[in-house]
Simulated scan of single mutants.
Amino acid sequence: MGDAYVWVADLDARPEEAAVLAGRVMDWLEHRGIVQGELTNCLPGDELGRPPGPHAARAVTENEVALGAACGVGMEIERRVYLCADLWTATCPACGATTEPADRGPDMWTRAWAPLLDDLYAWFGGTGPGSGVCVRCGERSGFSDWTIHPPVAVAHLGLVLWNWPLLAEPFLAELSAVLGGHRLVTARTTV
C-alpha cells in the first residue's frame, strides 16, 4: 500500500492573509502537542514538515499516528485544488444536475462535463474565477456551492498530513475556531 495524506482546505482564507493564518495554525498545533516544533525531512520528496507530536492522537479518529519515513504535517500557502484520487461526482447548486460516470472507463463523464473541469484548472492556473459553469443549465456557481463527492475544494490555504488517519470532528471544529470560524473541507486520499 502506498502513501496517503489527509488534506484540510480553508475555503475562506484570502490570499493576502494565508501566511499569517498558516503561522497561527502551526503555533496552535505545536502548543497542543499535535506536531513537534522543529522542521524535519518527514514529508515525501525534499519538503520539510513537522513530525507528529506527543499528543497527535488527539487530532485523529484512531488511537495513534503511526510513525514512518513520510509522516508529517505541512502547510500550503498557495492557490490549490484539493481533491481525492477517486472518481468524483459534482451536483450543480442551481439546477441539481449531476455528473454521471459512463459505463466505459473512470473518466468518461469528463467529456460532457469538461467545462467544469476547465473552470477548476483555470482557477488553479490563476486565470479563472472561483466558480464553475453547469453544462445543463448554464449557471455559474462558486465551487464551494457545488456538492462534490468525494470532496473537492479550491483554497489558498491548506493543511496536509502525510500518512495520518482521518481527523476527528472535535479537532476540526477547534481548527476552524483558530482560523476565525472559517469553513473547512477535508478528505483522505492515497497516492
Rank of each mutant, 00 (worst) to 15 (best):
A122T: 03
C84R: 05
C92Q: 03
D103T: 15
L67P: 05
W88I: 05
R136C: 12
R140Q: 11
T99N: 00
C84A: 14
R104N: 14
A85N: 14
G138T: 03
L83T: 13
R140A: 10
G142D: 12
A90N: 00
A94F: 00
D107T: 15
I77C: 09
R111Y: 14
D107F: 10
A114P: 00
P150Y: 07
D118R: 06
V154N: 05
E139T: 01
F143A: 01
T127D: 09
A69I: 14
H156Q: 12
G128K: 08
D145G: 10
R80I: 14
A122E: 06
A122K: 07
F143Y: 02
G125K: 09
P150G: 02
A94I: 00
A122M: 06
W113H: 10
C84M: 10
E78C: 08
F143E: 00
I77K: 03
P115I: 01
P115R: 04
D86T: 12
T91M: 15
P106V: 11
A155M: 07
R79A: 06
T127A: 11
D118M: 07
A153V: 05
C71T: 15
P115K: 02
P93G: 06
V135L: 00
A70F: 14
D118Q: 12
C95A: 04
L116H: 04
E100M: 12
W113N: 09
A114E: 08
T99G: 01
D103K: 11
D103I: 13
I77E: 09
F124K: 03
R140P: 02
L67A: 13
D103R: 14
A122S: 12
G96T: 04
I77H: 04
T99H: 01
P129F: 04
G125V: 07
T147I: 09
L83N: 08
G105D: 03
A97H: 05
V135K: 01
C84T: 15
G72F: 04
P93K: 08
V135N: 01
C134S: 06
P101Y: 02
A70M: 04
A69T: 15
G142V: 04
T99R: 00
G72M: 06
W123I: 03
D119R: 00
